[in-house]
Amino acid sequence: MSTTTMEPQGPRPSRITPARIGVYAFLVVSAAFFLLPLYVMVITSIKPMAEIRLGNLFSFPLAPTIEPWIKAWTYACTGVNCEGIKVGFLNSFRILVPSVIVSIALGATIGYALSFWRPKGANFLFAVLLLGAFIPYQVFLYPLVRMLSTVGLYNSLPGIVVVHTIFGLPLMTLLFRNFYAGIPIDLFKAARVDGGGFWAIFFRLMLPLSTPIIIVAVILQVTGIWNDFLFGLIFAGRENFPMTVELNNVVNTTTGEREYNVNMAATILTALVPLVVYFVSGRWFVRGIAAGAVKG
């Protein structure tokens, strides 16, 4: 055996190759690029203005303070109102909850009907819905404003919910249609043979199977609607401005010096809900992206 001990045996000697170092170097530098703005945001929000004026963006606060957070939440000014970003936070919730529920309920029903029942014109309906997902919203805006003001919903909470439902529908329908397309048609046939009607099959058979896709849909809609700016700005009305619009107003309301620490605190507060959803949902969020992206 003494002659073979010099021979290669066992695992290849593990070497730290330059390529391996390169991989980690790239990943770490990239991670720094992605994390830097978050770091700057947090660090700025707890600095007093005196330190910010020094222009040391990355340095740790010498005298950390939560005052900017309090101001941002309770008494930062948007225009003449000085009630802080909490108004927008509440508005966003009031918009979010009904919009998410209505758009998912509608999307699930339509996706189910399109997948299994294929009524006349289903293909045309789906084609237009799909197109709606890609068309710039600007085409719809003006007539929609006029229609909603005719029925008295312009600048109101129900109005903005309707708008979110309308424009959430393509993605929701696509999501559920694709999901139901993966369910064996034989299951549906069996239910039909057993005498199930449209709603019975939907509520008793399909909906209980749909939990995963409903979770995905909730994640997509919560982040999507919370992050919306355009519709909130145009359709919600002053009383109901969502948090993103309020945030922009806070930042652009300058009386004297711009309070960057307050602005950053308000920004973090606005980003908080989707970030929490993202970190809690983890793989579901990725699944949502895939579900929305993969073809029918």
Partner: peptide, 14 residues
């Protein structure tokens, strides 16, 4: 994990 592989009279483990 351990041991050797020889092919054509040559130790090719690594």
């Amino acid at each position: 994990t351990a041991g050797q592989i020889w092919i054509g009279g040559k130790n090719v483990t690594w």
